[in-house]
């Protein structure tokens, strides 16, 4: 299921959503990140790591970036267990907890999404710019892009897991 979700979002980002950037380099979202963020916090660390790596591989193949998303995805996948621990509630995660608004609350979702987006975009910035002297000029667009990715993920989340839709469905 996770792999399918990643594949679907990668395809969507590569084919349709890659051009949605209202402010150019200042708002370059990574839509596929949302698929990775939907991995439940209580999942094994290997699942998160391999999920991040797989997402990077698919994105690199789809976008022709060769290794940039792979590195950023692997880094995020490797740091996800630590991020989950960092944002864990005091009593820990329930076995049935899913990383959605209803289960984890808005502050958890927003904080975790923003932290993950920051990690991903910063690594992506480093491997894209590569030279130290180019980094200062790229840091602000990276931060705003991470914020924009967070907004996009939250919007997607609200659309897919909207409380009203659940009520209608039930």
């Amino acid at each position: 299921m996770m792999v399918l979700r990643i594949l679907l979002l990668v395809a969507l980002q590569a084919l349709l959503l890659r051009d949605i950037s209202p402010l150019g380099e200042w708002t370059q979202p990574q839509w596929a990140l949302w698929a990775l963020l939907l991995i439940p916090p209580q999942s094994g660390a290997f699942v998160k790591l391999l999920g991040g790596f797989a997402m990077g591989v698919f994105l690199d193949i789809a976008l022709g970036t060769y290794g940039q998303h792979m590195l950023a995805g692997t880094m995020l996948g490797g740091l996800m267990p630590a991020l989950h621990n960092l944002f864990a509630p005091r009593e820990g995660y329930e076995v049935t907890d899913r990383p959605i608004l209803r289960d984890m609350g808005s502050s958890w979702l927003l904080g975790f999404t923003l932290a993950s987006a920051l990690v991903y975009h910063l690594v992506l910035m480093v491997v894209t710019e590569w030279y130290w002297h180019l980094m200062p000029a790229a840091i602000l667009p990276t931060l705003t892009s991470a914020c924009f990715t967070t907004v996009c993920c939250m919007v997607t989340h609200m659309i897919v897991y909207s409380p009203e839709r659940r009520k209608t469905g039930s």
Partner: peptide
Amino acid sequence: LLAVSLSVLF
């Protein structure tokens, strides 16, 4: 996995 990614990048 980082090494694999870096090798592809390089």
